[in-house]
Structure formats: C-alpha cells, structure tokens
Design a protein around this nucleic acid. Sequence first.
DNA 1: GCCGTTTTCGGCCCGACTGTTTTCAGTCG
Length: 580
Amino acid sequence: MTNQEIAGILYEIGAYLDMADVSFKPRAYEKAAEIISSLPDSLSDVYKKEGTSGIKKIPSVGASIAETIEELIKTGKSKYHKELKQKTPVDLSNLTRVEGLGPRKIKMLYHKLGIKNLKDLEFAAKKGKIGKLAGFGAKSETNILKGLEFLKKSGGRFLLSEVLPLAREIERRLNNIAGVKKVQIAGSVRRGKETIGDIDILIISNDADKVMEYFVKMPEVGRVLARGDTKSSVTLKKGLDVDVRVLSEKSYGSALAYFTGSKDHNVAMRQLAIKMGYKLSEYGLFKGQKQVAGKNEEEIYKILGLDYVEPELREMTGEIEVARKHQLPELIKYGDLRGDLQIQTNWSDGKNSIEEMALAAMKIGLEYIVITDHTKRLAMTNGLDARRIVQQGKEIDRVNQKLKIQNSKLVILKGSECDILKDGSMDLPDEVLKDLDVVGASVHSYFNLSEEEQTNRIQKAMRNPHVDILFHPTGRLINRREAYAVDVDAIIRTAKEAKTIMEIDAFPDRLDIKDEYIKRCVDGGVKMSIDSDAHDISHLSVLEFGIMQARRGWAGRGDIINAHPLREMLRYLKGRGGDK
DNA sequence: GCCGTTTTCGGCCCGACTGTTTTCAGTCG
C-alpha cells in the first residue's frame, strides 16, 4: 500500500468522524494524513525495517493511528474505517473535491437523498432536488452544479512555472488600481512549491471595494466563488483558483505571514504565540487588546523568540525549532549563480548554437557555462559520439577565442550529458571523458529496472572517476512520470564517497532532485549544482526555479558548486578539476 | 487522537464568507 493510499484512508476516517460530530479527532487524522502524504519514505518500507515503533516516530502519529497503519500495510484494509464507512457509504474523496461540499453536507445529502457519488450528486442537482432540502437552497444547488462543471474541466495542481508568470501579471495589474499601495504574491507561490493549487495575493489599499470590483471582473475569471469586503476568491477559466485579501498597512506583515502559510507553519506560530501570552492572527500579534507587532513579518518572529524564517522553509520540517536555536542556514540567494553546468545546443537536441547559448548566458550575468550535449545512445537526439565531441571541442575553442577578443568574461567549458548504459557503464569511453571539463551522467533508458539494479547501475556510473555530476538523479517528470525506483539515500552516500555532485535540474517539470533530497544532501555534506538543462536560449530563465528548490531544501551558497567562481567550482570536481 | 520550554491530563488556530438563516453552521484557507 502506498503512502497516498494510506493517507487517503486516514483522511476518510477523519471526515467520517467529522460527520459523527466528534471533536478534535477529525483534525488528528487529517493532520496525520497530511504528513504521511508528503513523506518521502514509503511507510511499508519503514514498517518492514523498524515495525510500529518506526511508524510512531512520524509526527502526529500516535499509538492508535500507528495501529491503523499497521493493519493497512498488513491487510490493505482497516476495520475502523469500514465500520465508519458503513454508516455513510459514499465516495468521500471525490465528493469533497466539489467546492463548498464538506463532510456534514455530504452526510445530509446521503441520508436525505441517498447521494453516494458525483453521478448521484449531478443527477439530484439537475432534478432540483437539492434546492428543496432544509439547509440547502436554490443557490447551493447551482453552486454544486458549477462546482461539478469545474471539477470536470480542471484537474489537480499546476506547475510553478505555469503559474508564476500569470501571478506576476495579475500582481502588475492590481498594482495599477488607484489607491493600491502594495501588492504581494503570497501562498505556495511565494514559498516556491513545485506545484501550485491556487494563487494568493495580498493587497494594501485604502479602497478595498475598487480592488474587489476589478478583481472579480478580470477577463480570465471563470467563476466568482466569494466576493467580500476584504476577501474574494475566483476560479480562472483555466481552472486555477485565485484569492485576494485586502488589509491595512499596520497588518501587512501579519497578513503576509498568514497568507504565505504553510497552514501548518501558521498553526504552529499561533500556538507558540498563545504559549507566550499573545494572540496571532492576520491582523497582527496582540497582547490583550494591544497590537505589539504586525507591520512586518520580521518583528513577529522576533517577539516570538525566533529568527526570521524564509518563506521557502515554512513547511513544518523543523524550521521553528531551528529558528528558536538561531541555527537557520543562510540560504542561497537569487543571483548567486555564477555558471550553468548543463546546456544543450543544436549539436544534439537543443535549438540554438553554442555561440547563441553563450551570448544568452552572458546577458543574464553568468561567468561560465558547460556545453553538455547528449551522447550517441540517445540517437533520436542526434547524440554525439567520440568523433563529433572532439569536433565540438574545436568549435568551443573557436567561440571562446572570439569572446575573449570581445573582452567578454564568459568562459565556455567542454562537457557532456553522457548516457548511463544499462549495466552502469558510460556511453563514451574513458579516454574521451577524461579530456572534458565537466561530465554529467544521466539515465535515459531502462526506467523500470528493480530498485536494486537501478541503484547499482547509477552507483557504478557515479564511481567512474571521470563522472563529475549525476544529472536529474531520479528521472521524475512532475505530473507526468514517477521517478524510477532508486534508493536515493544510497545514491547520496555514494555521492559523498565518490565526490560526485548531485544536480538540482531546474527545468520546471523536473526539479530533480526534490527539496527533501536536497536537504539530505545538505545534511550529509554532499555538494550540488543548479543547472538549467536549457535546450533553448529562453530556457536559461528556469534557473530561478532551481534556486527556489534549493532554498526549499535549506541549501546555502556553500552547498551549490556553481554559486562559486570558475576556478573554485572546478576544485569541487573530481580529479581533473583539482589540478586546473 | 495527539502532544508536552508550565503539562502524562487537558488542551487543541483564527477569521472571512456564503447561504439560509432571524443568530448561525459549514466550508475554506
């Protein structure tokens, strides 16, 4: 049973307890489910290795929930869940996806109209049965129908790269409204999450009504979910929700903190405030009736005895305790990157020439790039063999010479994105690899080997003395392809031993390795690189997403080799770098 | 049901908005 499946059952138990009007337990199950669904390790594996005591180590999982998890892993079922479900046998996970429907309403719909699933719901709503129900009305009915319609159209979360430009565009337009003093993107976009469920925007203005009026009538709005004096929510035609909140200047910091989340981080902050005799809300930090902070985020953290926590760290992965001990790392900054270590050109499947890529890199202020075209096994990309890579080296020399004459600071290095073959050997011979400045190794085939075979294969490649970097180490494509089965902790240990650099591939649907693994590299003293994997000059801008991801993984400048000048960067590489 | 920088018992975040209500429950974030 996967973590997602286990989390799903726990969510349902929570919802059923909510229906039964039980207090506090629903939140306990919900919390455990949230934590489990974002857990990097498989619970089945944890159970196999450490038994229930391993399960109980997970925060928010105590004796009772651990027992349920054990039962789920062993039998695939939970008696408790089954008992609860018998009372209201409905398709909870889908029904709750309808905007405005929660456990209580679902229970009513089942008992009064026998609605069990989305199909029943749509049928009843179209027949006008729901509007006649006590507690519901005509408006509820149309809202359910609209909710169903939008559910069919959209699905799930969007890539940060799809959302960020749109969020910035809306931000820009809201900024132009008369009376608006400040507009700030908050929520998971500000935290730099790899996928986004909705856009949250905070506005400081003395004419909230004007802002709301504009906001709900923007051309891309598909449906207005709520329109209030200080808060409005819409669903865009493309299926993404946007919330705006208008507040006054004196609450800017507390509102920003509240609106940035994560939810769990906020809850922890509020609990901490209570413990220290304060009350924290979006309006400010209060002692009794008196506002003691809230104009900016920094002063709130300070009064609560914490160092400032950067938005990317606010995920309840220990940031509050570490902030209390004043041990938060100084994160890598936007603009810290000096080079890009993975760039494709038209020598393989890239669109632009070496020179075009170099000029584009110069424009964004980089000091060095590595040309890393594919190798011959990837025939469809026109991958390079030994002969062509030597030719390419000559072309790189030529462009470097030209740039030098023009007094440019940019240096182009010779590299390769060399395929790892099925048995872990490399697609180009050692004699060729040894002459390159930077060698990246990638898996592009045999994604379905067993975890052991895949791990061994990759480890063998990492131990090749000429391989410097493991490119996109887990091979996932967000929303499209799962990572291949690989023991990432073992890979990280090998990276430590063999001094292999782990890449953070910044391409928005890769973001590989993901934030939790970055943190493990940081903790394990394994160095990383942030690379664009650009196949086009426009792709160089994705480095921003890589930096966000690195920050989410608690990485500082010192952890990222290409945040350093060329000479220093080369020193981190195996063998060849040291004596350059 | 979980948890502990006052606690192994007694707490558990806070507020906006909607719809159907004459004062509030449900949902959401």
